[in-house]
């Protein structure tokens, strides 16, 4: 088994190669505006650091968000195209689940990431592997909690989420480990499609404005 994993649903562009037992190589760059420039070179770099050829890969794993759409689509488009070009399956995992997995917590907590427009993408978990609410998008004040909160949401909105914990951004190593675990357990994995949660901003126009006085 050789899994290439990456996530672009947050400011982190994170890539890892996992052989089923451990992460062989990984790389993460935090740059909210350059997902499209950074991702594919990072994949090439991580593959060569892992001593792997692209033809050795047996699966692609990708974070499906929710996250800012422009960056999110870079990861999903890359996963879909690599999957068809290499003839290997691509699996999607909710990015908030990756952050939850990384906390290792065994009690109830929340994951919240930056949704911009003064909102957060969030979900609630019973433990590191069990989501029971969300993902949703809301104003921090509307989902404020004293529970532990992982993800950048807790860093950005301490008044709503005073109990910050765990990682600020997801890591592709954790994503790969989660996919390996779910594949072994015969558990469900999602298709590599984005979780948007918001509809496109567009209004049906009114009648044309008059130009005469």
């Amino acid at each position: 088994m050789l899994v290439l994993a990456f996530d672009t649903a947050t400011p982190a562009v994170t890539v890892a190669v996992h052989d089923g037992d451990r992460v062989l190589a990984d790389a993460t760059t935090i740059d909210a505006r350059r997902h499209g420039e950074l991702l594919v070179p990072a994949i090439g770099h991580v593959l060569s650091e892992a001593g792997a050829d692209r033809s050795d890969l047996t699966a692609i794993a990708v974070g499906t968000g929710p996250g800012p759409y422009t960056g999110l689509r870079v990861g999903l488009m890359t996963a879909q195209a690599l999957s068809t070009a290499l003839g290997v399956p691509a699996y999607g995992v909710c990015t908030l689940d990756v952050l939850a997995h990384e906390t290792g917590l065994e009690t109830q907590f929340t994951v919240a990431t930056d949704a911009r427009r003064k909102e957060v993408f969030w979900a609630r978990y019973g433990d590191a592997r069990t989501r029971f609410l969300g993902p949703s998008v809301d104003k921090p004040a509307d989902v404020a909690t004293d529970e532990p909160v992982a993800g950048a949401g807790a860093v950005l909105y301490p008044e709503a989420f005073p109990n910050a914990t765990g990682p600020e951004h997801p890591s592709a190593g954790a994503l790969a480990a989660l996919v390996v675990e779910r594949l072994r357990a015969g558990g469900e994995l999602d298709a590599p499609w984005p979780i948007y949660l918001r509809r496109p901003d567009a209004k049906v126009p009114a009648a044309p404005k008059k130009v005469s006085q």
């Binding site: 090439g44 759409y69 422009t70 690599l82």
Partner: peptide, 18 residues
């Protein structure tokens, strides 16, 4: 910009994959 980015991401992935 956002539309171009989808095509460019796909093309890079095909380039790397092939």
């Amino acid at each position: 910009a956002g539309a171009l980015l989808v095509g460019v991401a796909a093309a890079k992935a095909y380039s790397l994959g092939l």
